[in-house]
Amino acid sequence: MTAAMFAALLLMAQPVSGGSAGSGQAVSLLTSRPAQCVSVSGSAGLMVVLDRNDVEDMATPPRSRWTTEAERLRLVRFHQAQELIAAVSSGKNSLGCDVAGNIGGGVYAMLALIREGKGRVWKSATNAFLPSVTVSAHNIDCSRGPAGHYTLVEPGGKAFFLIPACVV
């Protein structure tokens, strides 16, 4: 799918309520700007902000061939973080962060950092970082339809980022 298709799907997303739309994980976020940061724009004036050091740590090559599931996932995250770093342009945004454009598979490194509590979300309407988000999972195993996704939801229930999980 293209970025335009994901944007269209996000615009169609309704506010998340209870368990009917998907299961959600509340995540506390960091609320200060890191010295070096990478930003990824969402919708509705919201922007994910990551510590550049966290992304670069994730993009450090594994020391050996994987033998366990945890090591395999580390290798996957390594490639995703490299994709995120490769999407960084030379410009800075209003927060002084490096701007990542079309991040492709790097979106999963971003999601991992958010779920680990290492992310931030800037809301331009309030000029402040959000204290938390909900990561909602919708049919992520494609057992109830041809596609599944994760949605980042701000307090109050408005979705601002859609991340594909599966397509069959």
Rank of each mutant, 00 (worst) to 15 (best):
L73C: 08
L75S: 10
A81N: 07
F78G: 03
M58S: 08
E69S: 13
E83F: 05
L75G: 04
T60I: 02
S64D: 13
H79W: 08
S64P: 05
L84Q: 04
R77H: 12
R63G: 14
E83A: 13
R74M: 05
R52Y: 11
T67I: 10
I85W: 03
R65G: 08
W66R: 05
D57C: 11
R72K: 10
Q82R: 08
L75P: 05
D54G: 01
F78C: 07
R65F: 14
W66L: 09
E83V: 07
L50D: 03
E56C: 03
E83D: 15
R52L: 14
T60E: 08
T67S: 10
T67Y: 09
Q80A: 09
A70G: 09
E71N: 01
E69C: 11
A70Y: 15
T68Q: 00
D54P: 01
E56G: 07
T60P: 00
V49I: 07
T67G: 14
L75W: 13
A81K: 02
V49E: 04
P61I: 04
E56T: 07
A59S: 02
A59W: 07
D51N: 08
V49W: 03
R77W: 13
A81P: 00
A59Q: 05
D57R: 14
A70K: 15
P61G: 07
S64V: 02
E83R: 06
Q80V: 10
M58R: 02
P62D: 07
L84A: 00
T67H: 01
T60M: 07
D54Q: 06
D51K: 00
V48W: 09
E71S: 10
R63L: 11
W66H: 15
L84T: 05
S64N: 10
E83Q: 00
A81Q: 03
P62N: 04
T68N: 06
V48F: 00
A59K: 01
N53S: 14
L73P: 03
A59L: 00
E56W: 01
V55T: 06
T68H: 01
I85Y: 04
A59C: 05
R52N: 11
E71K: 10
M58N: 03
R52W: 12
T60G: 02
P62Q: 01
T68I: 08
I85H: 01
E83S: 09
R65I: 09
V76S: 02
L75A: 15
R77Y: 11
N53Q: 15
R63Y: 11
L73E: 11
V76A: 13
D57G: 11
I85K: 04
R77E: 02
V76T: 12
A59M: 02
V49F: 04
E71F: 13
V55G: 05
E69Q: 12
T60C: 06
R77V: 08
W66S: 11
M58Q: 07
H79G: 10
V48S: 01
A81M: 02
Q80W: 04
A70S: 15
T67K: 09
S64K: 14
A59R: 03
